[in-house]
Design a protein around this nucleic acid. Structure first.
Lengths: 190, 190
DNA sequence: GGGTGCATGTAACTGGTTACATGATTCC
DNA sequence: GGAATCATGTAACCAGTTACATGCACCC
C-alpha cells in the first residue's frame, strides 16, 4: 500500500493529518491524491504499528491538533519500500475508454468536441504545473541544475508531470487534426 | 462505473466473459484492465438490469459457455455515457511517489538505477505498442489516413498509448542525464 | 448571529484484487 | 497420466470515495 509509505516519507517533518492533506492538494496533486477520511485512520493505524508517533499540539483555532512524526522503525519501513521493485501503477484511463467506443455515435463532430474539451482541461493543468516551474526558476537563477539535494528529486517528478501533460496536449492536437481531416473528406465526397 | 459501460460497448459483438478477458488483455490493455473475477459478476448484474442478454452456447472444450449481447436499453445507457462529461481518471503514480521521496536514501546511484529500470520497462511497453501499429500499417498501406470508421477511434487511442509511453521514455532519458551530471559534479569537487 | 477556516473523525459504500474451487477437453 | 487451455464462478479482503457529524475560533 503506497499511501502508508508516502505518509511515512512526508512525516520526516512533523505534521498533522490536516497539514498532510494540504501537501497532497498543493504539492503532489499531480501524482497522488488522498482524502482526509482516508488520511486520519491511516495515521492512527501507522501509529498502532509503531511507525509513527503522534502527540497533541495547539491548533491555530479550534480544539487541539494531533501532530505525527515518523519513528526509526517507520523510517526503516519507508527506506525498504524506496528500494523495493518498481511499481508501474495501473493505467485505467476513462477518457480513452470513451474515445475507443465513440465510433458508436457515428458522428465525428462529437468526437471533435470531446477532444477539444479534453485538450482544454489538459492545457489548464499544464499551465498550472508550468507556473510552479516558473516560480522555482525565478527564486533560483541557477534552476534547474544547482538545486539543493532535497529539491532535486522533486524537480524530477515535477518534470514528469509537465512532460506527461504536455504529451497529452500534443496528442489532443494531433487527434483533432486527424478528426478534422476526416470530417473535411466526408464533406467533400460525402 | 466505467467497467459497466466498457462491457456494454464491447458487447455489440456477442462474447463470453472469457472472450472479454482476452479483449482486455490483448487489445485494450494499455488503457483498461479487468480480472475474470470482476467480469463475471458484472455481466450477471448488467443482465439483471436488462442491459445485457445472456444465452448458453457451446464451448470449444469443457462445459457450456455463456455468451452475452447488449440490449437496446443497454445500448442507450452506453450512448448516454459516451456523451457525458469527460472523466480524466485519477493519477496515482507509485513510481513518482517513490522518486519524490528518494533523496532520503542520500545516494544518487540508487536513483540512477531506479530510473534505468523504469526506462527499461517503459521501453519494452513502447516496443509492444509500436509492433501493433506496424502490423496495422503493413495490413493497410493507406495507414493511418484511410482507416474504416470503426478503426479510426481505435487508432486515436493507440496513438495515445504510444505518445504517452514515448513521453515516459523521453522523461527517463532526460532524468538519467540530470542524475549523471549531478553524480559527476559530486565526484569532481566532492 | 453567520460564514469561513481549522481540525478530527465515523459509516456506508464502491471498485477492484487475490486466493480459492470446480470441471471438461485436448495434446503430449 | 499430466500439463495446458477453455470456461465459470465465490469469498475475503483492500484501497479509496462520499456523505455525514462535530466543534472551536475568528472576522464581519
Amino acid at each position: 500500500m503506497s499511501l502508508d509509505h508516502i505518509l511515512l516519507g512526508l512525516l520526516r517533518e512533523p505534521a498533522s493529518g490536516y497539514d498532510l492533506k494540504q501537501i497532497f492538494d498543493q504539492r503532489i496533486h499531480y501524482f497522488w491524491a488522498a482524502e482526509l477520511s482516508q488520511i486520519y485512520p491511516t495515521l492512527r493505524r501507522l501509529e498502532r504499528k509503531g511507525w509513527l508517533r503522534g502527540r497533541r499540539a495547539q491548533a491555530k483555532r479550534g480544539a487541539g491538533r494531533r501532530v505525527y512524526q515518523v519513528t526509526p522503525a517507520g523510517h526503516r519501513v519507508m527506506r525498504d519500500w524506496l528500494q523495493s521493485d518498481v511499481e508501474l501503477g495501473d493505467d485505467r484511463v476513462p477518457y480513452l475508454a470513451k474515445l475507443y467506443l465513440m465510433d458508436e455515435l457515428g458522428d465525428l463532430r462529437k468526437t471533435l468536441r470531446f477532444l477539444t474539451s479534453l485538450r482544454e482541461k489538459f492545457a489548464s493543468n499544464l499551465a498550472a504545473l508550468e507556473t510552479i516551474e516558473r516560480c522555482w526558476a525565478r527564486e533560483d537563477p541557477s534552476y534547474p541544475d544547482s538545486l539543493p539535494p532535497a529539491m532535486f528529486h522533486v524537480l524530477l517528478t515535477l518534470r514528469n508531470g509537465i512532460c506527461m501533460i504536455a504529451a497529452r496536449v500534443k496528442w489532443c492536437d494531433e487527434s483533432i487534426r486527424r478528426v478534422e481531416a476526416r470530417i473535411a473528406k466526408e464533406a467533400s465526397h460525402g
